[in-house]
Nucleic acid binder design. Sequence first.
DNA 1: CAGAACGATGTCATTCTTGATCATGGAAGC
DNA 2: GCTTCCATGATCAAGAATGACATCGTTCTG
Lengths: 93, 93
Amino acid sequence: MIKNDIVLAIEKKTDFSGAKSLEIVEAILKELKAALAQNSKVEIRGFGSFKVVAKKTGYGRDIRRQKQIHITQGKRIKFRCGQELKSIAPKAD
Amino acid sequence: MIKNDIVLAIEKKTDFSGAKSLEIVEAILKELKAALAQNSKVEIRGFGSFKVVAKKTGYGRDIRRQKQIHITQGKRIKFRCGQELKSIAPKAD
DNA sequence: CAGAACGATGTCATTCTTGATCATGGAAGC
DNA sequence: GCTTCCATGATCAAGAATGACATCGTTCTG
């Protein structure tokens, strides 16, 4: 599924045009990004929650040179799925 | 940020009522859950991608009993943030 | 179509994972 | 709008799994 699929889904659910659906999706994404940018945790009950955590993984690895790279800066956005999302994932392949 | 914040954001961006905005948000969430339920990978360029991976961590740990718990069933929904999301998270707090 | 982001690989360190419980807060009901 | 209900979060511990950088190919986006 890509962004366009979500847009199409909104089109089907509502009676909006594809353009309008698209701007709605982008608006939501913008809101999410803005929220995460200010270190806010995004929590949607029944779906999941995004949380920005400081990345302490101060060790990268350059496979081409087999050398370690020191990294300490950066953050990571963790997404934890809620109970309803745990319910899905039917067959473990 | 909670679900209501997203709903309010749609209200501001569009001219829909809060109820309509809410159903749009829920429709999107439903689509995402449905996509993940069928093992589909959800990829949103510039935001991030959800991927359903089989959980191989067949060992949990009950600290209260100091005993290992065998788990093999289950899946996990991994979210990897895209480049635009990496750009955010300004100060590492 | 063109451009740019995304995925995977490899090694090693770091983080995550499960599980149950208490408290907090999101969500829904009145 | 306020209150209630129930999901969510943190924790401890040990083991397993993932992440990160760099590059190329592929796919998504406009």
